[in-house]
Amino acid sequence: MTDTTPSPLIPPEPPPIRNAEFKAALLLALMVALLLGAVLYLMYARGAFEATQTLLLQADDSEGVVVGMDVTFAGFPVGRVRRIELAEDGKARIVVDVPRKDAHWLRTTSIFTLERGLVGGARLRAYSGIPTDPPLADGAVRALLVGDAGAEIPRLLAAAKELLQNLSSLTAENSALEASLRNVKGMTDKINGPAGAMGLLAGDDKQAQQLVERANKLLVTVDALALKADSLIGNADRRVFGKDGVMTDAQATVVQLNALLADARASLKKMDAVLVEAQAVGANARVATADLGSLRAEVESSLRRVEQLVNEINRKWPFKRDTEIKLP
């Protein structure tokens, strides 16, 4: 028998692509151009073609600082870390590129800090307190102030450990605080005892009782003295301010003295009139002199009476006054 199975159809070969090598080269060149464009765009976006100035920051160490980290001012990036190197003096040197358009925010008095928090990465920050200061020069070297919160943890732990040790020593069984509390408790017990605070001062109940008895006797004596003082004050009040006291006599004497002074004043006025008359009338000088002698005798009599009253007042009551009367 003959095989009647049909043979499979073989597809025809596709026609050759015209200029295949040229198209492949063109595609490869386009890919290279796209790749170069992307690289150039990324470099432009990263500021590779922007005019910058260099800022050198020195710190004891550069822990937490990476290349490409931004330097911020008021929350906005004004620079980028380009390189980190070790200086000749053993300090870390951080090279920062600052764009020219943002360089006016940095002044000669600006402060640069590196902040390392417990959570998150480190941050480079710039602070310009006086914006009118001269701008920061290109290639300026500034110190970087480092604030590390994690570095304070060992110190805090050591301080807490020392505090706990001191607290344990204070609250120990034979500590000074425990002895002081025992003494305070003993003092409180003595104060609450029968002798009270006197027992605390005396230190013994018997001596405290004796002190209490002496204090009571002293109080009795003080009361007696107070009564005597009250009686003395009452007697003095009656003698001085009573009906027949010294003040009453003194007031009467003062009234008499005022009357005598009025008489003396009237006599002096008469003498002044006589003197005027004696000066006006020269012919009657002998008569005026006789009248003047009688008036003078009358004035001297009044003055003697005033002096007697003043002596009597000084005898009854020690008034310290200047009793001298000056004639005109």
Rank of each mutant, 00 (worst) to 15 (best):
197 A>N: 07
203 G>Q: 08
186 G>E: 09
198 M>P: 05
187 M>T: 03
189 D>S: 08
189 D>F: 03
207 Q>E: 01
200 L>R: 08
216 N>Q: 14
199 G>W: 06
194 P>I: 08
211 L>M: 12
201 L>R: 13
206 K>A: 08
218 L>K: 13
197 A>F: 12
184 V>A: 13
205 D>E: 13
186 G>K: 08
213 E>P: 10
211 L>T: 00
202 A>H: 03
191 I>R: 04
188 T>I: 11
185 K>I: 02
198 M>S: 05
216 N>I: 05
188 T>M: 04
212 V>R: 09
212 V>C: 11
187 M>G: 03
213 E>R: 15
201 L>A: 14
187 M>K: 08
196 G>R: 01
184 V>M: 11
201 L>W: 05
202 A>K: 03
213 E>Q: 13
206 K>R: 06
221 T>A: 15
217 K>Y: 15
188 T>F: 07
183 N>A: 14
194 P>L: 09
218 L>D: 09
199 G>I: 05
202 A>D: 04
214 R>P: 02
190 K>H: 09
183 N>E: 15
212 V>K: 14
206 K>N: 06
203 G>R: 09
184 V>Y: 01
219 L>D: 06
185 K>F: 10
213 E>S: 08
193 G>A: 07
183 N>M: 09
200 L>C: 02
183 N>T: 12
205 D>Q: 04
213 E>G: 03
211 L>C: 02
212 V>G: 13
205 D>M: 03
198 M>I: 12
202 A>F: 02
194 P>A: 12
205 D>H: 07
206 K>P: 03
213 E>M: 01
190 K>R: 14
193 G>Q: 06
193 G>L: 01
183 N>P: 03
189 D>A: 12
220 V>L: 15
198 M>K: 10
188 T>L: 06
204 D>M: 01
187 M>H: 00
221 T>P: 03
197 A>E: 03
189 D>P: 01
205 D>I: 06
215 A>T: 03
192 N>H: 00
212 V>F: 13
194 P>N: 11
194 P>F: 02
